[in-house]
């Protein structure tokens, strides 16, 4: 069914470092092969047609989160998007909006994620006890561990940020990825921070109260993370903190 089609790729091209270059859409044609993904297609285009085409792939297995881009209006991981998924033989590729553009389809999500981790202190702040690595570890409720892993499946691909109109309008808003990670540490019994500590980080207009619940994050997340549930949880919790203090 997917054999024999000629695909047209409309690709956003812009090299911000090239003096005089302007953003434009460029069309490329490619014969579709069985099992072709956008990863395979882009690499063939670069090897056969235009060696200056920029894009990012690392694991090419949907694990590392490097290759998010907007494919026919949907921000998603390019490596695991099969071209056969699109009944129309035209595929439009845009870089993820909201990030610094390196060139063409390549954006600097890494820089963004590191900055947000530093800003929100997205790491475990361990309690003082039980840090001896030579003795039996402290037990943890198996259910809690499973719940934490579910939230930890985020691959920092940036889709939630680019799919969030709130974040696009307001630079300082932390975005879903930051909130999800805060929720992950808030739920972790090993973390020493109190609700109050988290309130100081996200209990504001740039944090959980800045979210307008447009849910682009949840609807596009390639890992199907429960953004709606977790952000609502944080909102209730942060709001309750306000009442109690």
């Amino acid at each position: 069914m997917s054999q024999g089609r000629t695909l047209t790729f409309n690709i956003f091209r812009f090299d911000p470092q090239q003096p005089g270059d302007k953003p434009k859409m460029v069309s490329y044609q490619l014969d579709e092969t069985p099992g072709m993904t956008v990863f395979i297609a882009l690499n063939r285009l670069r090897e056969e047609q235009d060696s200056s085409l920029q894009f990012d792939f690392v694991c090419r297995a949907g694990i590392c989160g490097s290759c998010a881009m907007v494919i026919n209006g949907m921000p998603t991981l390019a490596c695991r998007t099969l071209t056969s998924k699109f009944s129309d033989a035209t595929i439009t590729l845009m870089p993820l909006p909201g990030f610094e553009l390196i060139g063409d389809l390549s954006v600097n999500t890494g820089k963004f994620m590191r900055e947000i981790a530093e800003r929100l202190k997205l790491w475990l702040h361990p309690r003082g006890d039980g840090q001896d690595i030579h003795v039996l570890e402290a037990p943890m409720d198996p259910e809690e561990a499973a719940r934490l892993y579910e939230l930890e499946r985020c691959v920092e691909c940036g889709v939630c940020v680019s799919a969030c109109a709130t974040k696009q309008m307001r630079e300082t808003f932390v975005g879903a990825v930051g909130l999800m990670k805060i929720a992950r540490f808030e739920l972790d019994s090993r973390d020493a921070r109190s609700v109050d500590d988290f309130y100081h980080v996200i209990g504001n207009q740039d944090g959980v109260f800045g979210c307008m619940t447009l849910l682009g994050c949840q609807d596009n997340c390639p890992k199907d993370l429960p953004h709606m549930q977790q952000i609502a949880y944080l909102r209730r919790k942060m709001s309750a903190t306000l009442v109690s203090c």
């Binding site: 475990l124 039980g130 690595i133 198996p142 809690e144 561990a145």
Partner: peptide, 18 residues
């Protein structure tokens, strides 16, 4: 075993025994 325990202290949610 030391590394596994250290990682638990750093936040890894190891699957636990029920």
């Amino acid at each position: 075993p030391k590394a596994v325990r250290e990682l638990a202290n750093w936040g890894v949610p190891w699957t636990r025994v029920t």
